[in-house]
Design a protein around this nucleic acid. Sequence first.
DNA 1: AGGCTGCTGCCATTATCCGGCAGTGGCGGA
DNA 2: TCCGCCACTGCCGGATAATGGCAGCAGCCT
Lengths: 235, 235
Amino acid sequence: MSRSERLFDLLQLLRRHRHPVSGRVLADEIGVSLRTLYRDIAALQAQGATIEGEAGAGYVLRPGFLLPPLMFPPEEIEALVLGSRWVAGRADGRLAEAALSALARIGAVLPVELRAEMEASALFVAPGAPIPADSIDPALLRKAIRTERKLTLAYRDAGGVASERVVWPFALAFFDQVRLLIGWCELRGDFRSFRTDRIAKALLMEARYPARRAELIQRWKQAKHAAEAQKLDAC
Amino acid sequence: MSRSERLFDLLQLLRRHRHPVSGRVLADEIGVSLRTLYRDIAALQAQGATIEGEAGAGYVLRPGFLLPPLMFPPEEIEALVLGSRWVAGRADGRLAEAALSALARIGAVLPVELRAEMEASALFVAPGAPIPADSIDPALLRKAIRTERKLTLAYRDAGGVASERVVWPFALAFFDQVRLLIGWCELRGDFRSFRTDRIAKALLMEARYPARRAELIQRWKQAKHAAEAQKLDAC
DNA sequence: AGGCTGCTGCCATTATCCGGCAGTGGCGGA
DNA sequence: TCCGCCACTGCCGGATAATGGCAGCAGCCT
């Protein structure tokens, strides 16, 4: 692989990682010595790329580099099409349409060969068992998450017990058969998940919840890990 | 100026000129011999650039090499991220990486607000039951499909019976737990599906199969519908 | 304090690049 | 029809840059 080719690859590799990556890892992935990698990084920086390197951490590419990425390789087109097909088949109507529409938008900027690739893509998602329909509009849940606003839920749990509560929704998890809305429950003062097909009513409130979504997600993950650790301790 | 640096410059130079530019001019502007310029053009083309050169006219960079800025409504971003996450979690390594890489490419040409949207996306795919690992490289199967080439398969069916056959692969179907390679089987003279985790060996042959992929897919769908109709008749 | 990591200098080997030259073929204008 | 322009390719010898290894220094985090 020639050097110039490598530089493009390296750039794309850096784009993929949001968190710092050590030079050693990058060097191995590209198949080059560490010394050469340092030289390559320097070369990219000389071209105007804002790559930050911190000792003890690794490299991060700050967005805003003037040179846009190269066109998608065929494998990436396949991946995008497959993913969108999954969404189109397994998500609710609005999101399914959005997936196809996004694909069309991407198709519009592809050169003809790749567009043909996209249209003739041979990776299919098999239709799975039917997903229990939601009685509420899933788009509303996503909107609440996106705008970080509170939600009043009428819910009935696995035992059939109904309740009404205010939650701060911050994530939606897609399982094979079920979708879970995850949020901070004001009623319980803790994180809770709600099967979307058991939500009887959902009301989007005006009030934004007093936390950032990303932060809630992080705290939730920590809480989950702590819970698992506790289980392990119990064994 | 090093070569790789020059290639970046050449790219920018071509981006600026919308009308054909002769090689002589480009060579002078970069400060390099004509012979070298031709080599540089070839190098860029080797990386996928669609640079068109016409005798008597000059060079033009056709769109489709660099990814132009893209714009999506938030819902479409969510759909793309969700789809890519599914691929990243449920497909084989190569394809999973391709999904993330494609996402990174898109992110690089997004306006900042949308980029933030993408990074903070709150739709997750729950990890499902572990998928039986393939003993062969799934990327090879996709390559065969993409290039419409024959494949020699060593296969053992549900009963454990081993066989070896030549197939014309044209599709890959993703089920929750299983992936099926679908193709025309020369041995049986009919369409057949193969669980990828039961393929012991796969050899990509030189020969292309004498049919178009799209056409095979169409014929296969018809055959499937016919089979289902027959079943219905039998009821 | 110690481990991880970024970063730089030096050097011999090696691979690549470069320019020049000659030749082919497509194109359009004289 | 001829001629000039231009893209493109193959070849070659000399120039140049890239590469990897080693050694060493400096931040950062635990």
